[in-house]
């Protein structure tokens, strides 16, 4: 019942965010219509980072408990993370084409999202290379945590060394938000509803993986009984 209510809220919310972003929002000086990418690009990028943190968290839990379920959660966090990372790259790249006149020019922000994609790619190629289940889970978890340690360098240090053209992040060093009231309302509701959407996808996947595990265990015990 509650989940149905949430689904309804999510549906109406996302529909309102889209309409608001295209029809109601005020535009920024100098950016014109291209302001609107803000409502889609920034939440998606934010969710990518959240997934990355979740993958590291579940990897840590796996190493601690050796429960194969946590490995499965880390894997689906990474799967969804790669999906959102691609969306963030595409929306950002289209915006860059319009504003900077090139799809890709190795701005520090572009570099960091690219590294994130590379890490995801390496993670899955490592997984595919190992056949034993527990060994795969353990090595993938270690790699995930090792990558997690290096990411702060791309977020905090590389932009300090190289000059970035990327507009100030919403939460910038001065602690100010450069948005007017209308933009703020749409931006934060977009962030809110997209976060709920991502949590929903994650929970559905999580339940699915859990059920698969139970089913497999059930089948295995049944086979043993037959013997």
């Amino acid at each position: 019942m509650l989940s149905k209510l949430w689904k309804a809220i999510l549906f109406v919310g996302i529909a309102l965010v889209f309409t608001g972003a295209f029809l109601w929002s005020s535009l920024k000086e100098g950016l014109g219509d291209f302001t609107r990418v803000l409502y889609f690009h920034v939440p998606v990028a934010w969710i990518t980072v959240v997934f990355f943190f979740m993958a590291a968290y579940y990897s840590y839990r796996y190493l601690r408990t050796k429960d194969i379920l946590f490995d499965a959660y880390a894997k689906i966090s990474n799967e969804l993370g790669i999906l959102f990372a691609i969306m963030a790259t595409i929306t950002g790249s289209i915006w860059a084409k319009v504003i900077w006149h090139s799809f890709w020019n190795w701005d520090p922000r572009e570099t960091s999202i690219f590294i994130l994609l590379l890490i995801y790619g390496a993670y899955f190629s490592l997984r595919s290379a190992i056949e034993q289940e527990d060994r795969r889970a353990r090595l993938a978890a270690v790699y995930s945590l090792l990558a997690f340690v290096t990411v702060p360098f791309f977020i905090f240090i590389v932009p300090r060394i190289y000059f970035s053209l990327h507009p100030d992040p919403v939460i910038n060093p001065q602690g100010k938000i450069n948005l007017d009231v209308k933009q703020r309302i749409i931006f934060f509701s977009s962030l809110f509803f997209q976060t709920i959407l991502f949590l929903w996808i994650f929970i559905v996947r999580k339940t699915q993986v859990k059920l698969q595990m139970y089913l497999r265990e059930y089948k295995e015990t049944k086979l043993l009984e037959e013997k």
């Binding site: 570099t111 590294i115 590379l118 890490i119 790619g121 390496a122 190629s125 490592l126 290379a129 190992i130 056949e131 060994r135 090595l139 270690v142 790699y143 090792l146 990558a147 290096t150 360098f153 791309f154 240090i157 590389v158 060394i161």
Partner: peptide, 26 residues
């Protein structure tokens, strides 16, 4: 990590690149 994976060597550069890239950039 690689030595414990079954396909040895070929993956090493792919896995090491994102980890060592901060050294390269700086």
């Amino acid at each position: 990590i690689i030595s414990k994976a079954s396909s040895k060597g070929a993956l090493f550069t792919v896995l090491a690149f994102p980890i060592i890239l901060p050294v390269m950039i700086t």
